[in-house]
């Protein structure tokens, strides 16, 4: 496959091989192997602090592996630099865990940002697309607000809108629904399902919420001890006999139970 080409649906889009990453003495990733197919939705689960965000940042070249490699559409990410890396990133949209909105810009300017930097839309088209994306995440009438005037959940949704605005090939969502109320959570899940069904995008989502996971995932990958210990369909995962997976799911169910009764 040529470097400039994109993988067709079903082919491997993102390939992680023997990925190692440590911060000082803190070994976070120690041999991650994971293939993600084009046009599918992969959800990464795992306890907090296990390195899910670190993993996602390797895919887009924000972090460089100590060992191993990340390939996207056959291109080795850690070999890219400068202009080539910038061009490479145009195919991505990423929603950060805490939103990472630019706090010197309004909500509308935030969502418009990737559109002004990537692609060649006119001013009017950008404004229309911004309204559309904010509508998709059920945020209307906040265009002129500053991020500091929004709640944490709203900021997260603006971050989501900003990630999908330029209709990128690959979408990386870092806990897009954490801390949202159930109704909004469902809205975001629906959006992810729509994106998945369109087959136009490859989605990688980090999630804590097993309810979401089972709805939005084609495949679920579990990160544990710096490695991917399970990579299966949601149904297979649920039936997993692996005690580490089992334990993770059980704890989540208990939390759900507690939340419902409490």
């Amino acid at each position: 496959m040529g470097a400039a080409e994109s993988a067709r649906p079903g082919e491997v889009k993102i390939r992680l091989r023997d990925l190692h990453k440590a911060f000082g003495p803190n070994a976070v990733l120690s041999g991650v192997d994971l293939d993600m197919a084009a046009g599918t939705s992969t959800v990464i689960i795992g306890g907090s602090g296990t390195g899910k965000s670190v993993l996602l940042k390797h895919v887009i070249g924000l972090l460089r592996p100590d060992r191993g490699s990340v390939e996207v559409d056959g291109v080795t990410v850690e070999e890219l630099a400068g202009e080539a890396l910038t061009r490479f990133r145009r195919k991505f949209g990423m929603a950060f865990q805490e939103g990472a909105l630019f706090d010197s810009m309004t909500v509308a300017e935030n969502v418009a940002f990737p559109l002004t930097r990537i692609g060649s839309r006119s001013r009017a088209e950008i404004a229309a697309r911004v309204r559309e994306c904010l509508g998709l995440v059920k945020l209307e009438g906040v265009e002129g607000k500053m991020p500091s005037e929004l709640s944490g959940g709203m900021r997260r949704r603006v971050g989501f809108a900003r990630a999908i605005a330029h209709e990128p090939e690959i979408l990386l969502f870092d806990e897009p629904t954490t801390g949202l109320d159930p109704v909004t959570k469902e809205t975001i899940d629906e959006l992810i399902i729509d994106l998945k069904n369109s087959l136009a995008s490859t989605l990688v989502t980090i999630s804590h919420d097993m309810g979401s996971v089972f709805r939005i995932a084609d495949r679920v990958a579990m990160l544990y001890g710096g490695k991917i210990i399970a990579h299966e369909t949601p149904a297979d995962l649920r039936a997993s006999r692996d005690p580490r997976v089992f334990e993770f799911l059980r704890r989540d169910l208990e939390m759900w139970g507690a939340a419902r009764s409490g």
């Binding site: 940042k57 887009i60 924000l62 910038t86 061009r87 990133r89 145009r90 991505f92 949209g93 990423m94 950060f96 865990q97 805490e98 990472a100 909105l101 630019f102 706090d103 940002f113 990737p114 930097r117 990537i118």
Partner: peptide, 16 residues
């Protein structure tokens, strides 16, 4: 503060 709130990462991600 842009660094610790990942705004600088966000810039890079958006090809900037």
């Amino acid at each position: 503060s842009m660094r610790v709130t990942e705004q600088i990462d966000a810039l890079e991600v958006m090809a900037t």
